[in-house]
Design a protein around this nucleic acid. Sequence first.
DNA 1: GTAATGTTTTACCAATCGGTCAAATTATCG
DNA 2: CGATAATTTGACCGATTGGTAAAACATTAC
Lengths: 215, 215
Amino acid sequence: MAIPRAAKTQRRTRIQEEKEERILEAALDVFSVSGFRGTTIDQIAEAAGMSKPNLLYYFRTKEAIHRQLIDRVLDTWLEPLRAFNAEGNPEAEIRSYIRRKLEMARDFPRESRLFANEILQGAPHIEDELKGPLKDLVDEKAEVIRTWARAGKIAKCDPYHLIFSIWSTTQHYADFDVQVRAVLGHNLSGEGRFEDAARFLEKLFMDGLRVTATS
Amino acid sequence: MAIPRAAKTQRRTRIQEEKEERILEAALDVFSVSGFRGTTIDQIAEAAGMSKPNLLYYFRTKEAIHRQLIDRVLDTWLEPLRAFNAEGNPEAEIRSYIRRKLEMARDFPRESRLFANEILQGAPHIEDELKGPLKDLVDEKAEVIRTWARAGKIAKCDPYHLIFSIWSTTQHYADFDVQVRAVLGHNLSGEGRFEDAARFLEKLFMDGLRVTATS
DNA sequence: GTAATGTTTTACCAATCGGTCAAATTATCG
DNA sequence: CGATAATTTGACCGATTGGTAAAACATTAC
């Protein structure tokens, strides 16, 4: 008799690792579009090319799949902010943060939408992570920004709202992609939208942060 | 026998108007959190304080409720952009647009989230509206902004990405409210978040659009 | 080989889904 | 008042939901 669901100490089989990856990949497709409640196990199973009971052999519940996805995304999602370096050049750090966040929106739109869906629905699965690790990290980096401002290296501004506005403007190109495409149309301007966005956002934030005579 | 579902020429009864409003109100609560697929008729019915068959007496299908909500939101949502006046003072117009969008995020967060949910899911119900009326309106206002820039009244910038960034930064405070609250904590800074955001965003965009010697 | 384990399938379950129906109830109008 | 139309309810439908049981099948270890 099989000890069900990979309960053994080691994840031995190659097949197990492979199938789990395929399930997560398929689940990301579906969850990122339909949200948790709107997604069915059958949809995921079909997208992963296996039967529902077979899928449930690897993940006991829908929640289990979702949680693992969310955990992964939360981790990689904050990497750019973690890389934010207090010792570096302020303008360069912020500019590179914007660029990296925009690249993530371009390269991992499903992950961005999964996260957006979760927040939109009131973050029922990750409230603790938001109030804990996320808040702590933002608090830390906000203090860095405030220090830079006090030292006169960048203009004075609310560091929290600065971070919020970088998050929102960059993630917009992943989460609201359909709308962006619809508005830009499929003419030339739509294709290079990430390059255009990068140019625009870097200018916007750099102008806003540059120390001016009036500030 | 009743001619079902308000098929008569006139919406006569007060009770009808009243119940329909109560249903839409309840539906907005649920749809804005769970999205279309994630919402059940029973949830809406319970939130509206009536039985499911009773609710279905006023709206034949779940789609019908959703569509009416979406239509309403789409209309009111674009009002601030429509109010954008080509003859007005550029800086004042943009500043007031930001303020009004932020006020809408504060006063109508459910409407914002309903819209966000729809876009996140690929805008299956409103693709045409996005490519038609929305695109036309944005095209028109983008041209206004471009004219201002050419006349040297504001700095040169991509008007589409300017609009996107105003949309995203303001709506962020409605759509990602849970995250914003979690990060700010429930200390003083969290309560005045809309005022703080207004200050920050106005400064950000105004600095970025002011004509400088270097541009 | 064979025995033990790991994987997949078939059949199934109770609960919930969107929605219908006809009868019961209530409001409206003359 | 009575009649007619509007509203509400409870019982119900077939399809889909998340998930299970057990047996069939495949793989590995010895």
